[in-house]
């Protein structure tokens, strides 16, 4: 696994990997990929991918409002709010 790929993956996953741990991480992931390689050797032709480990079907809910406004309790544990809004670091400059 190339270091550049690891850096890109880290960026997409919003994980900080510093230069010291980069090589170590690359090594670990390469080992995991070897395991994946082993799994991929299995013949899966004509086998439908599994969507869920349980052989069950989703129950559907009736379209009725039962949730009540709880924003006060939710916002009490938010780092910052204003005018009912949750505040986050600026996303567009």
């Amino acid at each position: 696994m190339e270091l550049k790929t690891i850096e890109n993956l880290a960026k997409l996953a919003r994980i900080h990997i510093n230069d010291e741990t980069l090589a170590e991480t690359a090594k670990s992931i390469t080992e995991v990929l070897a395991l994946v390689g082993q799994l991929q050797a299995a013949d899966t032709d004509n086998i439908q991918p599994m969507a869920h480990p349980l052989d069950a079907v989703q129950r559907l809910r009736e379209d009725v409002v039962t949730e009540t406004d709880q924003h006060a309790s939710f916002q009490a544990i938010a780092p910052a709010t204003e005018n009912n809004l949750y505040l986050v670091p600026k996303v567009i400059g």
Binding site: N83, L87, K90
Partner: peptide, 15 residues
């Protein structure tokens, strides 16, 4: 929805 008006230099989120 993200509201990009200036809230203490931050963005406001309405979910």
């Amino acid at each position: 929805k993200s509201l990009h008006e200036n809230f203490q230099g931050m963005s406001g989120i309405d979910l």
